[in-house]
Each structure stands twice: as C-alpha cells, then as structure tokens.
Design a protein around this nucleic acid. Sequence first.
RNA 1: GGGCCCGUAGCUCAGUCGGUAGAGCAGGCGGCUCUUAACCGCAAGGUCAGGGGUUCGAAUCCCCUCGGGCCCGCCA
Length: 491
Amino acid sequence: MTDETPLEHERRQKVARWRSEGREPYPWNFPGRVASEVVRARASTLSSGDEAIGETARVAGRLRALRVHGRTAFADIDDLSGSLQLLLRADVLGEALYQSWISDLDSGDVVGAEGAPALSRRGEPSLVVRELQLLAKAIAPPPEKFHGLQDAEERLRRRYLDLLSSPETRQRFRVRSLLTRETRSFFEEAGFLEVETSVLVPLAGGAAAAPFVTHAKYLEQDVQLRIALELPLKRLIVGGLERVFELAKCFRNEDLDTTHSPEFTMLEAYWAYADYNDMQALTERLYQRLAARAAALLPEVPEAQESARAFAAGFSKVDFVDELERTSGITGLLEKSSAQLRDLARAAGSTVPDDSPPGVFLDKLFEHYVEPTLSRPTFVLDHPLSTTPLAKRHRRLAGRVERFEFFYRGYELGNAYSELTDPDEQERRFQEQLEARAEYRYAYDADFIRALRHGMPPTTGIGIGIDRMVMALTGTPSIKDVLLFPLVRST
RNA sequence: GGGCCCGUAGCUCAGUCGGUAGAGCAGGCGGCUCUUAACCGCAAGGUCAGGGGUUCGAAUCCCCUCGGGCCCGCCA
C-alpha cells in the first residue's frame, strides 16, 4: 500500500512476523469465553493482591491500553459487558513469551486470554494471564484513548470507530434495540399482528412528502419508495385482519436535520372497532412502559429519568384550536378565509406557497406558536378538518376531525385518528387536496378508495416516529445519533 | 435554499499582530514487577481540506470549491 502511514507500516511488519513464526494473526474462533463482567464479579470477591488459585476463565475483547512496567504489564480490554484488566507477568508467562507479547501487542488489537481471576494490590479486578491469543491484529490505530472520536463528521461516517471508542454510543444503540423489541411486545400483547408491506410501490401515499423514485426493470415502470405505511395497512383492515402493526423504514426525499432523516423508522398500528379515545389510552400505556424501561437501562442519564417521571404522570390534553388561539392571540380561527390564514402564517415567518390548502397555514401557525411550548407529554386534540384528509370528522365539533398528535420536548412523537371510512367522503377530500395544488396528486390513491367501498369497520390508527421516540427516551438531542449509519454525502 | 461557524500529525488539540509548523495520545528505541489518561529519556511523524489571489514573506488576510456543524426556511 502506497498510502499507509508509518504507524500502519509498523503494524503490518508485526503481522508479517507473526506469520513467519507460524502463528495466525486472524484466527477463526475463541471458544469458551465469558463476559468480562463475570470475571470482574468473581475478582471483586477476593482480597487485594489475591488470585483465585486453580480457577480458570477465558475472556476476549479489544485492547484499549497497555501499561508496561518492566516485567509486569497491565492491559485493559473492552468487551460488550465492560472492561477488564489483564495482568501479564514475565514470571507466569515465561521471559521470552512475555517479551514477545509486549513488543507485538498494540492498542486496538483483539485478544483472547485465559487465566485466573485476581484482585490487584490496588484493588482492580483483573485476570492473571497464563495464555494469550491474538484474535485480530489492528493495522489502523483506534481513536485517542482518553478523548475518543470527537469529530462529528467522522462519528457519523465511521460509526464503527465511534462504537469501539465510546461505551455511551454502544449503550445508546443497545437501548434502541431493546426499546423497539419492547414496542413489538407491547402491540403483540395487545392482540396486534405484525405485518410487512412493500417498500417499493407504484405511488407513495399516506402523507405529503416528496418520495424517492427508482425504476423496476421487469415492469418497465418507475416505482417509488413508500413515505408512510397508512394506506396498505388500512387495506388489511378492510381485509379483516382487525389489528395490525408494522415497524419499518419509510423514506422521504428531504433534508436531514436535528429531528428529520430521509430514511426513518415508523411504527403504524390500526385497530378495528375502536376510536381515537381508545388509542390515546393505548399510547399512554405504551410510553409509560417504554420510558420506565429506558430509565432502568440508563440510570446515569438524567433525561431518561426525567422522561420516566414525565410519562408516569400522564399526558396533558389541549384542544388544537383553543391552544393556538390562546398562544397566538388570534381569535375566530375557524372563520378565517384561506387568504387570511395565509397572511397570518406569513406574519409568523412561514414561506409555504400561496396556493397551499388552508390546513397547511393552520399547521404552520401551530408549529410556530404552540409546538415550542409543548415540553411535557401532551395530546393535541381535534384538528381543523382541512389539515387532515385521512381522518374521520368529529362526532360533535363542526369543522374538525377526531385526531390527536402527541408532543414531548417540543417535537412531535406521533399522530393518530379515528380513521375516515366513508369512501365517498374520502374521494372528496382527496379531490380537495388535488384542486388546491396539483403536486398533491400523488396522494390520490384510487385503489384505496375502491377498497373503502367494500366497507372498512370503524378503526383508529396511529403513527409513531421510532427514531424520535428513542431520542426522547434516551436524552439524545439529534436524530443522527440514534441512526447507526445516517446518509451523508459521499466524498 | 439563506445566515453564522468549523476543517492543523493516525487521534485529541495549541498556534498571539502576517515572520523557521507545536504539544499530548498512539506508534519506534531505551528504562522500570501494582499501574489504570501509568511514568522517565531519546528519536521520528505535516499537501495546515483543495485551488487561486494579496504580500519580500500566508496555517494566519481576500476569493472560489469541497466536506461538516448550528440556526432559520422547506418537509399538508
């Protein structure tokens, strides 16, 4: 390699030396190992300076630090359960073997060790090593051992370095995995069937967002990547599956920022014979359980503890229109013309196109005046009808739909309705969107209306942003830090 | 899309008013049998993101490009 650094050259020389001695620098396995925390726990029961004579344990992990004191050396290795100090001693390993290990080991190497648990004279849980095995030679050095990888760009582009140098990052992604598993269990226990619908669709509907477009060769047609799960899942309700959910990636061809990613994970659930009041109760239970779980997994993270307390106390409820009028000082919102709403939205700093439907202006006003104030768990209820083409009109309030969005820390975590099931009204609502702006034609799904004509039971549905859920419950301010490999420009 | 900020050794960071590019970690050599950001000594390591300009002289000032961050806008 012509672009290798002197440091890499040095390490390659060590690999060559290993091979020339008939030893394998990249072996196949390391059987019989236990987690380092097992050895730590055993060693902690000993007295300082004592070794568990006659006991043997095998551990493996990445070498983080090597402190050589002449004929004794201390090596710290990390595995997923934590870290452990290895004691390498010339009098145990033999002089020649000890010296060759000291000179061949580098930080970043993956090693396996066998030996006896011990507590060092200074009280550090350790393993007195009798046998050592190189499991993978690190040609490239790890990030700085104390500060870790600080460069924000490198942390995203080279997540493996972030993970191997940051226990916090490892823990954050473990918690993400456990929270999605918990979410699945919750819906399964509530009688929902997990399904998988298609990512590639002829027409991406169910939300207003720019889709990614690609090409299917066998159809000789362009296809799109889904922007929401809503329309296929409602078809399943028509088909009699009664309670379904999907937890999967959706794609929107838009910017990456603190709370948005073009590729994101969404949970949508549809529940026949129930309404949005039932869904509110389910949502409260879900978040109480998830927040408690996250708090238990992250005892050191104050935001996680705070979230558990906040969700345990239950959600506040505010009316969309009342709350917007109260915070903005505007009166008679529902009587305003589209032009009046547009001017109000302009005054609030929005630059959405003039020909947007009136619901868009209302949403902009809400985002500007109300959202930043919603720091504790809050249901926002009963949106104006023009904001929501897929929701059923309110059973009491004129000009409204039965909908709730819920917010925490000033951003939206989810969105739910009593679903619109009247096929003719659905067709009219799609039509109104279309007339307002031609670009919304992608939301017009004729086959979906045809499905509704066969009769869809009364149903409530919800969409939950999983990435934002993880952010909220782990105290992570940026969506990029809950995505393993956020899409970044290639260099 | 707009504004502000950042890019110096593999990593973490200094670099003053424009005057010979620095430290720590990692790596090399030497020393050290209880350290844990080990320590001590020696030597090595640079396309200062890239390109152009101003200047006797540019990491430093100006312009452009690339990459990133934050805020705003867009994302019914």
